[in-house]
């Protein structure tokens, strides 16, 4: 079987002596693996791409479940623009890792493809940490574990939402929980995730709160179900944000 699509490279991994296996998130065919058309020692550089790059891909295999072969036509690489920004590079690694780790193979996720592209393009903006946390929330939604951050689960209020229930993933308002009990394990809801936010102001502490929130549901829904641990790239990004916050 053979098809053509557009995709973003999520991972390059060495295969055998000199070959490389690529994992692309494609627009219409989801997450697909295949042998890349260039080798580790390749001197022809016009087809060499890095994680985060977008390319036209042709995938060919005898059966759909086989490890196919890619032929690619690179379109855009964000690496040059991010090369000199350590945080954005860590962000790119984390984005590619979380999508590659948890997106099921050969399952189309067109929304996720467009969200991923937008997120990678946003890495050059100054508010990309906020967009990264919003991307994680959207990733959870896309994979079937959406959080309800629109209304309070207890009062139905749409404003002053400050907590999220660790069990249901639903928001809770200040009015519903006037006094926070540590034993409830409520998660903080950063204001930039609230539907009634007035602007995109943020602090590093809020970014950490946001990543703790999504991290809790990644751990509970995705890590346990897939027996995969949290990607190291995400942990490293969290560490970098933490050093910024302190």
């Amino acid at each position: 079987m053979e098809w053509q699509d557009v995709g973003v490279l999520l991972r390059l991994q060495e295969f055998g002596e000199d070959q490389l296996i690529g994992v692309f998130l494609t627009q219409k065919h989801g997450c697909v693996r295949g042998i890349m058309p260039f080798r580790v020692s390749d001197k022809k550089r016009d087809k060499i791409i890095h994680p985060g790059s977008r390319a036209q891909v042709r995938w060919k295999a005898r059966l759909s479940e086989h490890l196919g072969r890619f032929d690619i036509d690179p379109e855009y690489s964000p690496l040059a623009k991010l090369m000199h920004d350590p945080e954005a590079l860590a962000g790119l690694s984390a984005i590619c890792s979380i999508v590659e780790t948890w997106t099921p193979a050969h399952e189309p996720h067109e929304n996720l493809y467009f969200m991923l592209q937008t997120m990678i393009n946003d890495l050059t903006s100054s508010t990309w940490p906020v967009k990264y946390v919003q991307f994680e929330v959207e990733l959870l939604r896309e994979l079937g574990f959406g959080l309800d951050l629109e209304t309070c689960a207890l009062t139905g209020a749409k404003s002053n939402l400050i907590y999220v229930s660790p069990d249901t993933g639903r928001a809770l308002s200040e009015k519903a929980i006037p006094v926070r009990n540590q034993e409830d394990g409520l998660l903080d809801l950063p204001s930039f995730l609230s539907p009634t936010r007035v602007n995109d102001e943020w602090t590093w502490d809020q970014i950490l709160q946001g990543m703790e929130l999504t991290g809790h549901f990644f751990q509970g829904h995705l890590c346990e179900a897939s027996s995969k641990s949290m990607p190291i790239a995400r942990d490293r990004l969290f560490g970098q944000f933490k050093s910024k916050a302190s």
């Binding site: 022809k44 550089r45 016009d46 087809k47 060499i48 791409i49 890095h50 790059s53 690179p74 855009y76 690489s77 690496l79 040059a80 623009k81 090369m83």
Partner: peptide, 13 residues
Amino acid sequence: DYLDDATLTTAMM
């Protein structure tokens, strides 16, 4: 003409 986009972008930047 034969260079990848990332190298060209870096070279230009």
